[in-house]
C-alpha cells in the first residue's frame, strides 16, 4: 500500500491509518451505544416532516440527516443500521475464523483423507462465487437473522483454513511443538495453548482482510431485499430503500452509502497496514 512504504523498521503509524483507526473506533462506539445515541425510534414517524432534507440543505436540527418518506429520522435509522451491520460482520467473521481454523488444524493433525477432504472443501468454496451460494441457501431456507449471520459466517473460512493448515504443519515440525508433545500434552493442548498463540497474529490479519468483504456482502444482499428483513434495518437495507427516492430524497441513500464506503475503506487500510507489519506473505 502506498500509505505504508518501507522506510525504517520502527516507523510511526501513517496518518491515513490513524484516521482509519479513529473511524473504526467511532463506528464501534456507535454500534455499542446505538440505543442511547439515536434521537428517535427507528419506526417513529413524524408525518408532518416527511422527506425533510438534512441540515444545511433546507432541513432543521430536529432531523439532522433529514427524514424518509414516512417521516422516519434518517440519523436514528443510520445509527441502528450501523449496529446491525457491525453485529453481522463481527459475528460472521468470528464464525469464519473459528470454523476455518478448526478445519485447518484438523487437516494438519490428521493429514491423509481428512486433509484431502478439507482441501476439497476449500477448492469448492474458492471456486464458487459466494453471492450465488448465499442466494441459493436463502432461497431454500428462507431468512432469519441467526441463519443469515451463520450463512455470512461461511464466507472466507477457507482463507483461515488454508493459513491454519499451512502454519500448523510448519509448526509441528518445529522444536517447541515436539517438545510439548514429548512432555505428554494432549493434541488439544498443543494446538490451543502452543500453536494458536504463535499463529494468531496472521489469523487476525486474515480476519481483518475478510471483515470489509463481509460488510459488502451483507449490504449487497440486504440491498437486494434478501438480507436483513424489515422492520430491522441495516446499511444495505437503507440504500435499497433509499433507491426508490433517488431523485426526490437522495440523502436517504447517500448517508448509509458513505458509512459503508468509509468503514470498508478504513478496515482495508488498517488490514493492509497490519499485514505489511506482521505478515507480508498474506494475500
Amino acid at each position: 500500500m502506498s500509505a505504508t512504504t518501507m522506510t525504517a523498521p520502527r516507523q510511526r503509524i501513517p496518518v491515513l491509518v490513524l484516521i482509519a483507526m479513529a473511524w473504526i473506533a467511532t463506528i464501534l462506539m456507535v454500534a455499542l451505544f446505538a440505543e442511547m445515541l439515536r434521537p428517535y425510534g427507528i419506526t417513529a414517524m413524524d408525518l408532518r416532516a416527511r422527506l425533510t432534507p438534512p441540515v444545511g440543505f433546507g432541513g432543521t436540527i430536529r432531523h439532522l440527516l433529514g427524514t424518509d418518506e414516512l417521516g422516519r429520522d434518517v440519523l436514528s435509522r443510520l445509527i441502528v443500521s450501523v449496529r446491525i451491520s457491525v453485529l453481522i460482520a463481527f459475528g460472521a467473521t468470528a464464525i469464519a475464523a473459528l470454523f476455518g481454523t478448526t478445519l485447518g488444524f484438523l487437516a494438519a493433525h490428521f493429514r491423509g483423507l481428512v486433509e484431502q477432504g478439507v482441501l476439497m472443501l476449500i477448492d469448492f468454496q474458492a471456486s464458487m462465487p459466494f453471492l450465488i451460494v448465499a442466494l441459493s441457501v436463502l432461497a431454500f431456507f428462507g431468512n432469519s437473522l441467526p441463519l443469515f449471520i451463520a450463512l455470512m459466517g461461511l464466507y472466507g473460512w477457507e482463507r483461515h483454513a488454508r493459513i491454519a493448515r499451512g502454519l500448523a504443519i510448519a509448526a509441528n515440525a518445529q522444536g517447541y511443538a515436539a517438545a510439548v508433545r514429548q512432555l505428554g500434552a494432549t493434541p488439544g493442548r498443543i494446538y490451543l495453548r502452543h500453536l494458536l498463540p504463535n499463529i494468531a497474529s496472521t489469523l487476525i490479519v486474515a480476519a481483518t482482510l475478510s471483515f470489509p468483504e463481509v460488510v459488502l456482502l451483507e449490504s449487497g444482499l440486504s440491498f437486494l431485499g434478501l438480507g436483513v428483513q424489515p422492520p430491522m434495518t441495516s446499511l444495505g437495507n437503507m440504500v435499497g430503500y433509499g433507491r426508490e427516492y433517488l431523485t426526490r430524497a437522495p440523502w436517504i441513500l447517500l448517508a448509509p452509502s458513505s458509512i459503508i464506503v468509509m468503514t470498508t475503506l478504513s478496515v482495508s487500510l488498517v488490514g493492509d497496514w497490519l499485514r505489511d507489519r506482521l505478515d507480508p506473505t498474506l494475500t
Binding site: P212, L216, S219, G220, F223, G236, V239, G240, R243, L246, L253, S257, I260, V261, T264, L265, S268
Partner: peptide, 12 residues
C-alpha cells in the same frame, strides 16, 4: 476504491 465501494453504491 474499486474494492471498497460496493457496486450498488457506485451504480446509484
Amino acid at each position: 476504491a474499486g474494492f471498497t465501494v460496493p457496486s450498488f453504491v457506485l451504480g446509484l
